[in-house]
């Protein structure tokens, strides 16, 4: 069990037009060639030419999401910045690998190397907001965002910090798409995606929208272990299945692994509305960020996003939410979420 994290604001940049409105009411954009690709924000609204020169695609996207998230929270300087990413700025990593080969290890431009470091975005957020603080980055695929959240909860648990900016960022490139294709990521129904998400979370519930009541991380569990973990999670918080108003699942149509989500669906009572989102975002290491963003926004507006509904339940409130995501059956994460009254 963790100390609850109270989310005050949430922002998302994805392949859907969900950034400016911070909503998902617009008609959905389809994927192109098995890939969902970012709708990029207008950077000129945020940065000068001099600032933009140092930022590549993913750092721009991540920084814009972070800026708006802090703006929504009305906070100039968070007390910590924690992020998670599976692959960081792939464009920069690849650019530098190509440069090494093209110029035969001669004199090379340092910028792609600098930006390829996984914590480059954290540093930029810190610089942009002039935040001197705790600052770290987790790079563990489908656990990346969750370790950033867990670490923030621990830092609040011993009163090192009272609030934090927490987020994830991910991009896909042509080259990496091919690599993942060869590794079998797209062969059974999953579509590639991208997304950056930022959350402002605090120790205190004042002004907050959504509480992360608990978080469970399981590596390569068998199906029984998942069943047990979900039961234990509900029991630890004195909840029955009929108390769950909304179940968000990370279904990605991959015929090999979607049966995991059924383990939870099977247990649901008619009360629960079941949602899914990867038909709009695609799959990526830190896709769970979308589920958390959607949960925050739906609780805040009191409206479910219609485009996500898989099965409508009888409950009319959005109070208790269960969110389950897994990444190719390796990293499984369970979130127990609750609306802040």
């Amino acid at each position: 069990m963790i100390n609850p994290l109270y989310i005050k604001s949430a922002r998302a940049i994805t392949a859907q037009d969900c950034f400016n409105s911070n909503d998902l009411s617009q008609a959905s954009r389809p994927c192109t060639g098995n890939r969902f690709v970012y709708v990029e924000p207008d950077y000129s609204r945020y940065f000068t030419i001099m600032q933009l020169r140092r930022m590549s695609r993913l750092t721009r996207i991540g920084l814009v999401a972070a800026i708006e998230c802090l703006k929504d929270a009305g906070i100039a300087k968070p007390e910590a910045i924690l992020t998670g990413t599976g692959k960081g700025s792939l464009n920069d990593t690849e650019k530098f690998m190509h440069a090494i080969r093209s110029f035969q290890e001669g004199t090379l431009n340092p910028s792609p190397f600098i930006q390829s470091t996984y914590n480059a975005l954290n540093g930029l957020i810190g610089l942009h907001h002039q935040v001197n603080s705790y600052n770290t980055t987790y790079v563990h695929s489908g656990f990346s965002l969750e370790h950033a959240l867990l670490d923030a909860a621990l830092l609040m648990g011993d009163n090192t910090i009272r609030n934090a900016l927490i987020g994830s960022f991910e991009e896909m490139t042509d080259e990496h798409y091919i690599i993942k294709e060869k590794l079998g990521f797209w062969k059974s129904g999953a579509v590639s995606g991208e997304g950056s998400f930022f959350f402002f979370a605090q120790q205190d519930k004042t002004g907050a929208v959504l509480a992360i009541e608990d978080l469970q991380l399981l590596f390569e569990p068998d199906q029984q272990k998942i069943r047990n973990a979900v039961h234990a999670l509900l029991a630890a918080h004195q909840l029955q299945w009929q108390d769950i108003d909304v179940y968000i699942s990370g279904r990605n149509k991959d015929t090999r692994y979607d049966s995991y989500y059924d383990l939870v669906s099977e247990q649901l009572t008619p009360a629960t509305t079941e949602l899914q989102f990867k038909q709009l975002t695609g799959e990526f290491d830190t896709a769970s960020g979308f589920g958390l963003w959607a949960a925050t926004r739906m609780v805040e507006t009191g409206q479910l996003f219609p485009a996500l509904v898989l099965k409508k339940g009888t409950s009319t409130r959005i109070k208790h939410l269960l969110f389950y995501n897994q990444y190719y059956s390796k990293q499984h994460v369970l979130y127990l979420l609750k609306a802040v009254e």
Partner: peptide, 30 residues
Amino acid sequence: WASGLDCATGTEHLARQFGLTDFMTTVSTA
């Protein structure tokens, strides 16, 4: 072998080898 590009991959193989699969993560702050 190409999965090794991912920072998590090495950690996961090591966790399996040393019986540490109940809880794992990877940090990258240069």
